[in-house]
Amino acid sequence: MSAHVVDPAWLIAWHLGALHPVEKWLTLALAFGPFLLLGGVIALRRRQDARDAIEDGVTRPATGDRPAPPARRP
């Protein structure tokens, strides 16, 4: 008869059980929150850059695949 050996790491994981709903939300916030924050910062900066480009007289702001047209000189 062979003894069934359980890895101690699995034993601890089984012992802890399922996460509490608050813990699940915190885990999701820690996992995806930084990416959502980064997306918000990028969107805000693009809006500010577009507004500055319009104020400077550039009709089409630069994007990653298209450079800004040359600036007009008064």
Rank of each mutant, 00 (worst) to 15 (best):
M1Y: 04
M1A: 15
M1D: 10
S2I: 02
S2V: 08
A3D: 09
H4R: 12
H4V: 10
H4M: 09
V5G: 07
V6N: 05
V6G: 05
D7S: 07
D7M: 15
P8D: 07
A9R: 14
A9C: 01
L11Y: 06
L11K: 12
I12N: 02
A13I: 10
A13W: 01
A13V: 06
A13Q: 11
H15C: 05
H15S: 13
H15F: 09
H15A: 15
H15R: 14
L16V: 07
L16P: 00
L16G: 06
G17D: 13
G17Y: 04
L19E: 08
L19V: 11
H20D: 09
H20S: 10
P21S: 04
P21C: 05
V22R: 12
E23D: 05
E23Q: 14
E23S: 09
E23I: 10
E23F: 07
K24V: 08
W25P: 02
W25D: 07
W25R: 13
L26S: 12
L26W: 09
L26M: 12
T27R: 15
T27A: 08
T27G: 14
T27H: 05
L28H: 11
L28P: 01
A29W: 05
A29R: 15
A29G: 14
A31E: 05
A31R: 15
A31P: 03
A31N: 00
F32P: 00
F32G: 06
G33D: 00
G33K: 00
P34V: 08
F35M: 10
F35N: 15
L37T: 11
L38G: 14
L38S: 10
G40S: 08
V41Q: 13
V41R: 02
V41S: 03
V41G: 01
V41D: 00
I42H: 04
I42S: 01
I42F: 06
I42T: 13
A43S: 07
A43F: 08
A43L: 12
L44H: 01
L44M: 02
R45A: 05
R45N: 07
R45P: 00
R45E: 03
R45S: 06
R46W: 06
R47E: 06
R47C: 03
Q48N: 01
Q48H: 13
Q48C: 03
Q48Y: 08
D49Y: 04
A50M: 05
A50Q: 01
R51E: 13
R51D: 05
D52H: 09
D52E: 11
D52F: 10
A53L: 01
A53F: 03
A53M: 04
E55W: 15
E55T: 08
E55L: 11
E55I: 03
D56I: 05
G57P: 03
G57I: 07
V58T: 09
V58R: 11
T59W: 02
T59C: 04
R60W: 12
P61K: 00
P61S: 14
P61N: 14
A62W: 06
G64N: 06
G64A: 13
D65G: 04
D65A: 15
D65K: 12
R66M: 09
P67Q: 01
P67W: 01
P67I: 07
P67R: 11
A68S: 13
A68P: 01
P69S: 01
P70H: 09
A71M: 05
A71P: 03
A71D: 08
A71F: 13
R72D: 03
R73L: 06
R73F: 03
R73W: 04
R73M: 10
P74M: 00
